[in-house]
Every structure is written in C-alpha cells, then in structure tokens.
Simulated scan of single mutants.
Amino acid sequence: MFLKSILLAVTVSLASAQIPRPEHSQVGRACGFKIAPCPFDMKCVPNNPYCSELNRCPGHCEFKNQYQSCGGFTPRPHNCGDNSECQDDPRLPPNCGLACDVPGICIPKETHFCGGFIGLSCPEGLFCYDALDGCDPLHGGADCGGICL
C-alpha cells in the first residue's frame, strides 16, 4: 500500500510538471548557446545585434512571419490596409484578444485555408494556425480548419 502511494505521488507530480504545450506561447523564450531550438514557426534572434553566431550568445524566439500590429488599447492604435483586417493573433494562446483591448494583427483578406478533414497544407514559408472560429479538434471538432500565416 505504501509503495502504491509513493508511485501515485510521483505520477501526479510528473503529470503536473510544466510541459510545453501548443496553447502556451513560446514568443520571447530563451534560445542560443546551443540550448533548445525555437518551435518550427519561429526563429532565434540574437539579443545583441552584433552577435552573428547564436552558438556563442543568447537570443530569444520570434515568429518567422511578421504581421503589422493593430487595434488594442494603445495610445495610437494602428489600422490595417485595404487588403487586410484586424483580428486576434491565432499564433498566440487563447485569450480574450481584441475584446479585452489586446492588440491583434493585420491578417490578409485572401488567406489560404489549411488542415480540416482533407488536411490541406500551406504554401512554402507559411504555417497553419487554428482559425479561432470556435472549432476545437481536441473537443469534438473533427473537421477544424485553419489559416496559413
């Protein structure tokens, strides 16, 4: 009985450990010095602009594809151009977004769709993100599509 209690305690503590999950943002996470690389849709940017060798200096993770910030509770909110619209950033973990005055990004109106039942892929250089449409593949949504950013 004592051994079962110990095994249960170890199992619970391992299960509750901080494990990187897709819903946690990796933006700003440390990289460089040959430590864990950034996720596939991010790149390691040196903290010092004079560093050209990331194996010898620290850096942080940033998205490979940059989009203009818009909306939000800022002194001078930016508006999007005619070919894009301001939406919550689907690359970040779920939050209340624009509804809570968190800045969004300008998403092109003509985006490619990805994922879904037939598993559409994105053009080279773009990555598939949840479309923030309420469909959740982890909770009953078998045909959830995304957008390529």
Score class of each variant (00 low, 15 high):
L138C: 11
G115V: 03
P37G: 08
L98A: 06
D143P: 07
Y67K: 03
D136V: 10
N79I: 12
K109N: 15
P94A: 12
T111F: 06
L54C: 12
D101F: 15
L138W: 12
E110T: 14
D101V: 15
A142D: 14
P123D: 09
S84D: 08
L138A: 09
D41V: 01
L132M: 10
T111C: 02
G119V: 00
L126P: 00
K43W: 09
C61I: 05
T111S: 01
G115D: 02
A142Y: 15
P46D: 08
G116D: 04
Q66W: 09
L132N: 10
D89N: 06
C31R: 06
F113I: 12
F113V: 12
C51W: 13
C128N: 01
L120Y: 09
Y129T: 06
L126K: 01
C31V: 08
D82Q: 13
I107M: 04
C114I: 06
N95I: 08
D89K: 03
P77E: 03
G104Q: 03
Y67T: 05
C51A: 09
K64P: 01
C70V: 04
K109Y: 13
G134M: 04
I107R: 02
H112M: 12
I105S: 02
F33C: 07
C148A: 06
E53D: 12
G97K: 06
C100R: 09
Y50K: 11
K34M: 14
L138H: 12
F33Q: 08
E124L: 02
C100I: 11
Q68E: 11
P94L: 07
D101G: 15
G125P: 01
C148R: 02
G146E: 05
Q66D: 07
C80E: 04
C38V: 05
D82I: 11
K34E: 15
S84Y: 08
E110L: 12
L98T: 06
T111L: 02
G97Y: 09
C122H: 00
G116R: 01
D88H: 07
C100D: 09
D41L: 02
Q87W: 14
I35D: 13
D101L: 14
G125R: 01
L120Q: 09
G141E: 09
C86K: 07
G134Q: 06
C148K: 02
D130M: 00
V45G: 03
C114G: 07
C31A: 05
G81M: 05
F113S: 11
A99D: 14
